[in-house]
Each structure stands twice: as C-alpha cells, then as structure tokens.
Design a binder for these strands. Structure first.
Lengths: 362, 362
DNA sequence: GTGAAAGCGCTAACAT
DNA sequence: ATGTTAGCGCTTTCAC
C-alpha cells in the first residue's frame, strides 16, 4: 500500500514563473492571484509578519487576542492551510508514524492498529498505514519508502529476513517489531507468546481424546507461524499427539484450499494458524459434508470478533491486541525520546477460549 | 486514524546549536558528527555538489556513471535517505493521496482501497489510509488534518453533512467522493447503484413469497443507507411488501443487537445493510433457535469474501469494489491534472448473488 | 557533465 | 507583543 516510483508527470501545482529575486516588504505584495495561500499571503493580507501568522496558527506564545482573531479570519477567508511539508522541514519531523502489516483485510491487525492509534493520538502523532500482502520484497521497499515520511516505524508481523531487518535497524528512524521476537536483531520488540497458547490448545484437544492433528500453517515467513508449529510439534512429544503440517497462509482462501491435503492425514482435529484460516477450513469441511466438531475439531488463533459469530463458534486463543498496540507505541515513544534504542523485548500472554468448534475426538 | 493535536514534547531530533550564519564551501565541513546524513553530508563526503547528489538520487539527467556510482556508494554507506519533507517542499507536493473511510475493519473498504492502490502505485503515488469510526466530527477533523499532507483526498462512504462537504470542496486539494453521490456538491464522485440492487434483492425475496421484511439499517448518515432503505420502501409499493426498519450500523455487533427489535415485526425476511450486519444477524438468529433460511431469510450487501464461507452462505449484492477503487483514482488523477474539477458522477452497477441464506417464505 | 545559488513555506531565535 | 531573518534539506535554473 505504498510505492516508491517517482515518475514526474503529474501535479506540479502550476509553474512558478520568476517571482523576483529579492524579498519585498510584505505590503508590497497585494493579495493578487488566487493560487494557493501561503503564510506570506496571509501575513500580507492581514498586514502582519509571517511570524505572527505562524504563532497564531500553532496557538503559541502571546499574540494579542484582537490581532489573533483578525489573522484567523483572514486565514479562514483565504482557505489557508499551513503546508505540512514545510512544517516538517522546519520542525525536523512530521509527527507521523508508519505502520506496516501483511494484510489490511485481517481484523486482527486492525485491532492492533486501533490500540496504537489511540495511544499515538494522545501525543499528537498520526499513523500512516500500509500493507504489503505478505511479500518480503514489497515489505522492504515499502518500509524503506515510508521511512522518509515518518518519525518512527512499526512493523507488524514482519516477514523480513534478518539481513533486511538489520538493514532497517541501522537507519536513523526508529523501528519496532510487533508480533515478532528475533533475538539476533537490535530492535525493540513486542510479541504474543503463541507457543504457550498453542500448547494449551493442543492440551485441550488431547484432553478431548485427539491424537492425530494437523496444523494448517500460516506464512512460513511469519515468526508466529514458527512458534505455533513448534508448539504443535512439541505437543507431539509431550502429549502423545501425532502432528502433521499442511501449508496455508492464514487467510480464508488458503485455509479453505488446505483442507483436502490436511484430510489426507486422517486427523481428528485441525489446528489452524489463525481464525481466518479456521473459518476457511470449516467452510470447506462443511462442503465436504463433514461436521465440526462432530466429525472433526477445528481451532483458530487471535479471537477476532467474527469468530464468535460464525457457526460453529471458534475455539481459539485470545491475543491481547489492544495491549499489543499500546505496547508498540510505548516502545516507539521511548525510541523517539532517547536516541538510545534499548533492546527491549516484551512477550504478552494469549489465553485459550473454548467454544463450539472443538469437541471430543470421534 | 489521524490526529490534529500538535503537542510539542517529543522528537525534536536534537537541538541544532548555532551553526554559522553564512554558508560555507562544501569542503569546509568535514563529515563530523554521526547525527543524520543530509544531502550536504553526502555531497561533502563524495566531494561533489549537492546538485549532483540530488541528480543521482532522483536518477535525473546525465551524471557520469562513475561519479554516480561513487555518490551512490557514499550515500549507501552513510545510510542517507532524502527527507521527504524537504522534497515535498521543493517539489510542491508529496505525491501522497489520502483515503478516509468509516471502518478499517470492514473488508469491503479494504477491497476498494486495493483497487485504488494498484492504480495509484503505477503513477508513483502513495496512499495514506485513515479511518474515522463513522463519526462525522472525527471525519472532518481527520480530513482537514490530512489535507496538509496529501495532494488529493478520497472520502469513502463519507458521513459528512453538506456544509462540511462544501467546506472541504472549497479547499485547494482535490477531493473525490467514493460511495456517495450528492447532487448538491461540486465534487467528482463515484457510487454504486445500490437502489436498483436492493430492489432486485426485494424482488428475489418477493418471488420466494416474502411479504413482510424488515430492513436492518446501516448508519443513517450513509448515503448507501438512504438508497437501500428507499429501495426497500419502494419495494413495499411496487411488490406489495410490508417493510419496516430497525436501526443498526453495518457491523457484526450492531446487526447482532438489532435482531430482537426486528423480530418484533414478525418478518419472514431480514434485508441487511451489508454482509457484516447480516452475519451478525444470522448469529443472533441461530442463538434464538431460528433457522436461516428455514424460519427466516437474511440478505446482505457487498459480497465480501467471508460471505461465501459462513453458514449459511450469504445471498447478497456484489459491488464492483475493484472498479470503484480504480474509478476513484481516475477521478483524482483528473482533478490533479487540470485545476478544473469537472463535476463528474459515475454510478456503477451491483449484481444480485443468490446463495443459501434466502429461501421460500415460511 | 557539474557547480553555485535561489528559493519552496514554515519556525524559531533574536531583536525591538 | 510583534517584526526580522536565518535556516530546515532538497530541487532546479543558470552558468561554466
């Protein structure tokens, strides 16, 4: 959701023909053309200096109420809007923070972003949201491009490999990793302990008599996927579960498509990477005439809202999305304040939520 | 997803103590501190002028390959990233376009945005995405704030009232209305003809013997809601359907919550504002022990992906989301090129999709 | 092919 | 309380 190409064929907002080499006293320039109001236009029209206009616009220091009022009126009248580009240049920062995620269509990310947004808004920061469809090359390009526009960058569920990650870490704009914990990288990060939560899911399943499960994976580039798959395999050893893995990408469509391969293992339960995949899986199972959980159990992960509105409702693990978002902002905030990016790592806990989609093994 | 507050307490990227009043020849400033590489740092380090660095970075005009290579290396080595703020200032535009929508969590919008993105990316534009939770005040504030950062603005399913809309139209940055057609406003706009599509839904229902339907609404501030409700009422006259309306907001939760009130009208069918609401509705009906479509039929609108993965699958109207997005970009593009914002209005067609959630009236 | 220098619109000392 | 002015980092004529 962002691009880097710099064609130049559009929108050069009119040519600006030679407009005098020297600056002229404010009053000398009457408000002529109707082009675009700048701080100078307003200053001239209001008969004050640009400094005063600037002060009024940012509500700073003491400007006499009467004057301020007049300036405000003129500004309003001229539809004057301070250029953020100029502001950013002068201030040395746009007060934007970039948020990059694999899939804008996944409600999970949306919830995390909401958490960040609330926290960021309180401090006067804007969020620039972009997605990269799970493609690392695209992710890197987008991150790189975004860096020019933002004061900080949050990578949600990044699919970047270590060299690329380190490359970004080396840049001057602070970066935080959300939903990924990568010991080898010098970056603040927050994640959810999905290993433990997935183990709980497996234990729950084992308790219901399941001995043969298949894991319907997420993107193999996702840290969460590695953690969850590791947990499923571990459950094999610890709980005596026979575990297989089939590939998917954590979306409705890939979940749906993975079912046939999964069924080849004759499992009694399907542990899915996330809720979206689980819903896709269930949809396909229904199509095949299989009842969930009668014939086979299915579990998700994330606890997105729709999980409790589908039939059967989803057994899943609830990630603390809001907390994740806030924590992410917290880290960014710290990185912004002190140039010293302390390598902080936080791991939040997800909790098992048992609903209808899991039942006794057949 | 954007804010306007301008606190000043963070990130002023270090103070810049008196650094000489006059500009000094490039070579006079050795690459000292490790602060942040600027074009001058790079120029000095590479022993060339800033003009050359600029040319190399934007791949413009002819710079001797050897020199270009050297500059690129130095830049790379210094982790130099041109500041977009400075660039934007000099160029008179950031090549950003803002996209504002009510609900980031609705897959429908996501699909529209994808369409826009693809189109915009080809022209070297970035998309800044923000949501406003359906609150007009928030929408206006966000739009206003965003205007400083973008070269164009797309308002998806805007909830703004006419005065506010006109206020935005009066500004210098081009604005297009997507998913809303408002005759009184001088703005380019694209919408989907949901009136006709909803009529088709009603006709479909009437054909199945339904005579008593209730419309589970969207936000009453949404143009689409007005159109759909108008269609439902019209169907009352034309098709002999007895129609009532209950309030919701086009989300899972509000759909779910609206069911009890809807049932008070003893309908045989529920026509929902969109798919999300329909899924919420069905979930509540199931909870009440009602079968869909056995006991009652339910229809949605939008044809989001999940609609064909839930049980029962949703009867709905398919909006041409991708086309919407592309058309939106098209309009923006035109507005960007010629200062003359021709008031263009396009209406796209939605088509009925019959699935499991609608059946014969009981 | 490359450099010098004039801004882009705004903010922040530093006067007054 | 208000005006002057020197930049912020980059692009872009205009010379050479």
């Amino acid at each position: 959701m962002a691009t880097t190409a710099y064609d130049r064929d559009v929108a050069d907002t009119g040519s600006r023909p030679e407009q005098g080499g020297r600056r002229v006293s404010s009053e000398a320039t009457p408000p002529p053309a109707s082009r675009k109001a700048t701080i100078r236009t307003v200053a001239a029209a209001a008969g004050v200096s640009t400094a005063t206009v600037s002060r009024v616009m940012s509500g700073v220091s003491t400007v006499s109420p009467a004057l301020a009022q007049r300036v405000r009126e003129v500004a309003e009248q001229l539809s004057y809007r301070p250029s953020e580009a100029a502001r950013g240049l002068a201030l040395g920062g746009l007060r934007n923070i970039g948020v990059l995620m694999p899939d804008l269509g996944n409600a999970y990310f949306h919830d995390v972003v909401k958490g960040m947004h609330r926290a960021a808004a309180d401090t006067g920061f804007r969020l620039l949201i972009a997605d990269h469809a799970g493609d690392p090359a695209n992710e890197f390009a987008t991150a790189w491009d975004l860096m020019g526009h933002v004061d900080g960058l949050a990578l949600l569920s990044s699919r970047l490999d270590l060299p690329r990650l380190r490359d970004l870490a080396r840049q001057t704009v602070p970066v935080v990793l959300v939903n990924r914990v990568e010991p080898g990288v010098d970056l603040p990060m927050v994640g959810v302990d999905s290993f433990t939560a997935t183990l709980e899911i497996c234990a729950h399943l084992a308790g219901l008599g399941h001995r043969r499960v298949v894991y319907v994976s997420g993107s193999e580039l996702a840290w969460q996927d590695r953690e969850r798959w590791r947990a499923v395999r571990t459950s094999g050893r610890v709980l005596g579960i026979d575990a297989a893995r089939v590939e998917a990408e954590g979306t409705l469509e890939t979940g749906y498509a993975a079912v046939d391969a999964a069924l080849a293992h004759e499992p009694t339960a399907l542990v899915c990477f996330n809720d979206l995949a689980a819903i896709g899986v269930i949809s396909r199972l229904r199509e095949l005439g299989l009842d969930v959980p009668g014939d086979i159990s299915v579990t998700g992960f994330d606890d997105i809202a729709i999980g409790s509105h589908v039939s059967p409702t989803l057994t899943t693990a609830s990630s603390p999305r809001d907390a994740l978002g806030r924590q992410a902002w917290q880290l960014l905030q710290e990185a912004l304040e002190k140039a010293n990016p302390s390598e902080t790592t936080t791991l939040l806990t997800a909790t098992l939520i048992t609903r209808e989609s899991s039942g006794p093994a057949r």
